[in-house]
Design a protein around this nucleic acid. Structure first.
Length: 150
DNA sequence: GCCAACGTTGGC
DNA sequence: GCCAACGTTGGC
């Protein structure tokens, strides 16, 4: 089973929103690397960290499970959506998403600051300068270590 | 609001 | 295929 980290801006969609919704399509991804990971590497049952980005205290705030295989993101065909992509073809959709299912909130947020300061997390992708991916893999070692900080 | 980093676009 | 211009991400 693989582990992932997925970023969301909490004023757009937060861990509490997912706790309420239980299960939700992770839509709006418009990055080819992430699209390819969804398509090739994501499996139902994989676990993922829910990370709050672009907010007052960026932090890992919970965990979730991947609840579907990758399928076309409907927002790419919706002109009213901010994620509309006029160049995407219905017969060959450009953008995919996966459904995610709420697992649990962490007892406390594990902040970006704390993650950056941890000596054993030097090569954690979130800490890598220039990493702009909003979804990326987390090693089992890092997954356990981060949960151990809780 | 700034800006570093990096992806995408499009002219040539 | 190169690369300048532009857009986006996301921490600070």
């Amino acid at each position: 089973m693989a582990h992932w980290l997925m970023k969301s801006e909490p004023n757009e969609y937060s861990i509490d929103d997912l706790k309420t919704d239980k299960i939700e399509p992770w839509d709006g991804i418009r990055n080819y690397q992430v699209r390819n990971m969804f398509r090739d590497d994501f499996r139902v049952g994989d676990k993922a960290f829910f990370y709050h980005s672009s907010c007052k205290v960026p932090a890992i705030v919970g965990t979730m499970k991947i609840a579907s295989k990758a399928y076309p993101d409907p927002t790419q065909f919706d002109p009213a959506s901010g994620h509309f992509d006029p160049k995407s073809d219905r017969d060959n959709p450009r953008w995919l998403l996966v459904d995610v299912k709420f697992d649990r909130k962490l007892k406390r947020p594990i902040t970006l600051k704390e993650l950056k300061e941890h000596p054993a997390l030097e090569d954690f992708l979130l800490n890598k300068r220039g990493n702009r991916l909003s979804v990326f893999p987390v090693s089992g070692k890092h997954w356990d270590l981060i949960l151990g900080l809780e």
